[in-house]
Simulated scan of single mutants.
Amino acid sequence: MKQLRQLHHYVGLFLSPMILLFALSGAFQTFRLQEEKGYGGTPPDWIVWMASIHKDQAPPRERHTKAEHAPKAEASVTPKAAKLAAMSKKKPFTLPLKIFVVLVAIGLIISTMLGIAIGLNNRAMRRTSILLLIAGTIVPIALLML
């Protein structure tokens, strides 16, 4: 059990920077804050950057206009396609689930930060713990630059 706890300690500290990034960016994406329609205007670059890392595992590319992403008009629409299109226009009430997802993200952030505090509290492993936190921050940044 001691080795298992030590492994959990090391893996948790190494992954905690990315867990924090993904929890926060996921919470933002729940309400589409990385998009103009969700933010209510042009979103800040840092939110767009976080969302791009979360969704694409890469920094954001140039922003495209809505016209570039507009679907092409079909020459003929089948009755089944028309029915599916009509069904897709109905938007389900998703606010309760979105609030729950944000609460989960907040819980994950708090839990991760508490885990970091507990991990750094052990004096015998503090130096290794700090090195793992640094490595867990630097490795993903270095991989983004590849």
Score class of each variant (00 low, 15 high):
Gln34Gly: 13
Met125Glu: 14
Phe93Thr: 06
Ser25Asp: 04
Gln6Asn: 04
Gly41Pro: 04
Tyr39Gln: 01
Thr137Glu: 03
His54Ser: 06
Thr42Phe: 00
Pro71Glu: 11
Gln3Met: 10
Gly136His: 11
Ile116Cys: 07
Ala27Tyr: 01
Gly115Met: 07
Leu95Gly: 00
Phe28Asp: 01
His69Ala: 10
Pro43Asn: 05
His64Tyr: 03
Gly40Cys: 11
Gly38Val: 00
Asp45Trp: 06
Val102Phe: 03
Gly119Ser: 04
Ala82Lys: 12
Ser88Met: 11
Phe14Tyr: 15
Ser52Met: 07
Asn121Met: 08
Gly119Phe: 00
Pro60Ala: 12
Leu7Thr: 14
Thr42Ile: 10
Thr94Gly: 08
Gly12Asp: 09
Glu36Ala: 15
Phe28Val: 08
Arg63Asn: 13
Thr112Glu: 03
Gly26Ala: 09
His9Glu: 05
Lys91Asn: 05
Thr112Arg: 12
Leu143Ser: 12
Lys2Thr: 11
Arg123Phe: 03
Ala73Trp: 01
Val77Gly: 03
Arg63His: 12
Leu21Gln: 09
Leu13Gly: 10
Ile53Cys: 04
Ile134Glu: 01
Thr30Gly: 14
Arg63Val: 13
Gly40Lys: 11
Thr112Asp: 02
Ala58Ser: 15
Ala75Leu: 14
Ile53Lys: 06
Leu24Gly: 12
Thr78Lys: 12
Ser52Glu: 04
Lys80Asn: 03
Gly38Lys: 02
Met1Val: 13
Glu35Ser: 09
Lys2His: 09
Ser25Gln: 06
Ile106Glu: 04
Leu114Val: 05
Ser111Asn: 13
Ala86Cys: 05
Pro44Trp: 00
Asn122Glu: 14
Leu21Met: 14
Lys91Asp: 02
Ala105Pro: 14
Ala81Val: 09
Leu143Pro: 08
Ile141Tyr: 11
Leu84Ser: 10
Ala73Pro: 09
Leu103Gly: 14
His64Arg: 15
Met125Ile: 05
Leu84Ala: 13
His9Ser: 09
Gly41His: 01
Gln3Pro: 07
Thr42Cys: 00
